[in-house]
Each structure stands twice: as C-alpha cells, then as structure tokens.
Simulated assay, not measured.
Amino acid sequence: MYEKLQSKLYHLKENKIFELFVVLVIIISALEIGAKTFDLSENALSFTGILDILITLFFLFEISVRFIADDDKRNFFKNGWNIFDTLVVAISLIPINDSEMALLARLVRVFRVLRMVSVVPELRVLINSLLKALPQLGYVVLLMFIIFYIYAAIGSFIFKDINPKLWGDIAISMLTLFRIMTFEDWTDIQYETMEVYPYSWIFYLTFIFFTAFAFLNMVIGIVVNVMEEEHAAQRNVNEPSMSELQNEIRELKSLIQKLDKNNLNTL
C-alpha cells in the first residue's frame, strides 16, 4: 500500500504539469505578497487572507509529496534546498494575526518567492555556481579593497581641501570612489579636481580601469568558469559516461560471441 502511494507521488513529483503548477503558485504567492503592500479594501484583504491560506496548504502538500516520494529519506534533509523549503513552509504555518511572531511570519512569506530557485533546476545551477565561486571571488574582492584603500588614501591627501564632503577622510573617500566606479556623475567630481590639478584625470581613469574594467571582467570570468563546470557536472549526472558506454559495448560483444559459439556447438 505504501509503495503504491510512494510510486504515485513520485510520478506526480516528476510530472511537468505539476512542476509548472508549482511555479504558477509561487508566482501567485509573489503577487499576493506585493498586493498586501497597497491599501486594500476589506474584501480584498479577506480574499488575500484566504488565498494565503490556500497557498500555504498547497506548499505543505507539495513538500509532503517530495518527502514521501523520496526513496532515501535519511538524506532528504541533507539537501540545503529541502531544508530551506521545509523551513519556509513550517514558519508560514504560524498564524499572523495577534501573534508575537507576526513580523517573522510576514518576512518568511516574502522568502516564499525564493522557492522558485528550488523548483527550477536551471536556477539551482546558477545559485550553486555563485556559491562555489565565492572562495575565488573573495581574493578578487580583497585585491579590489586594497586598490580602493590606496586610491582613497591618495584622494584624501590630495583632494581634501577641494571638497571635504567627498574627500574628507579615507572612509568618505572610499564611498566617493564607489560612486566613481559605478559611473554616477563621476565626471563632475573629476572636473572639480581638474580645476586645481589639471592632471588629476590620470587618477580617475586608472582607478576606473582597475575596478570597473579589470576586476569586473575577472569576476565575470570566474563566475562563467564555475557555471560551465556546474553544467558539465550536471550533464555527467544525467548522461552515462563514455567509459560506462564502452563497458556496456564490451559486455554486449562478449554476450554475442558466447551466443555464436553456442549456436555453432548445437550445429
């Protein structure tokens, strides 16, 4: 009885229509959360309240289906996405009205939109790639901080008297450099210092080259490289390897040879 139920739930979980319906419910949940930020009438509030209950019950059903259909239940919660989905669903069951945890429950309902990542495999690959790229990106960020610190110190020493609001100390200078890196009216800052130091454009152009161009391309290169490795690993999981195919071919050849020998012996 349980095995039949598990088999049916497994087929339901793998059904593409069911997956699309889960995505649709997540989108509706996101729209419902956004609608609550507006001033709604009493009828609309009651409707969104009923809709929120139905969405929570569906998510509870969906996570139950995934748990029952899983053959290896001991390792079900070793998957980070399963833990995230379960926590979101569990905290969503907390009643919002007249509760000390109302704010927490509302915030967790906002994170239900992130369940889209756990449902769509392509999004999971993107997030996993970003997480795996973090150690390599850490060194790039450290090097970028060093460049920021050097240029902020130089800018504070040279341009402090020109505009203390932008170059008053090293902390303010780093915020100014971040504004320059994002190209937010950076030419106004440059022309202001060029009136006193005509060659100060070298300071800005070299900084932009190091940060906006060189480091940004390094970050993109690292992320793209990790994403390619993740896609390759995913293909290896979904497709049999070349060595496995060769072994199967050898086994088929040996089996055919044995059958041929048996046929010859019978003749």
Rank of each mutant, 00 (worst) to 15 (best):
E3L: 08
L5Y: 09
Q6C: 08
S7V: 07
K13R: 15
L20Y: 14
V23C: 14
V25I: 15
I27L: 12
I28E: 05
L31S: 03
F38L: 14
F38W: 10
D39G: 09
S41L: 04
F47S: 05
F47Y: 10
F47L: 11
D52T: 13
I53N: 12
I55H: 05
L57V: 10
F59Y: 11
L60G: 14
S64Y: 04
R66M: 07
A69Q: 00
R74L: 14
N75C: 08
K78W: 11
N79R: 07
N82A: 07
V88F: 03
V89C: 03
A90V: 11
L93I: 10
I94L: 11
S99C: 02
V108L: 05
F111Q: 03
F111I: 06
R112H: 10
M116C: 09
V117E: 03
V125R: 12
L130R: 06
Q136E: 06
G138K: 04
L143A: 10
M144A: 13
Y149F: 15
Y151Q: 02
A152Y: 06
A152P: 04
A152E: 05
I158H: 00
I158P: 01
F159Y: 06
D161S: 12
N163T: 06
N163R: 06
N163D: 15
L166I: 00
W167F: 13
I170P: 04
I172S: 12
S173F: 05
M174R: 01
L177G: 01
M181Y: 11
D185L: 03
T187L: 13
D188N: 12
I189Y: 06
E192F: 07
E195C: 01
E195R: 10
E195I: 07
V196N: 09
P198D: 01
W201S: 13
L205A: 09
F207T: 05
A212V: 07
A212F: 13
A212I: 02
N217P: 03
V219A: 08
V219F: 10
I220C: 04
I220R: 14
I222Q: 06
V224N: 09
H231Y: 15
A233M: 11
N236P: 00
N236C: 04
N238P: 02
S241A: 05
M242Y: 11
R250H: 03
K258G: 10
L264A: 14
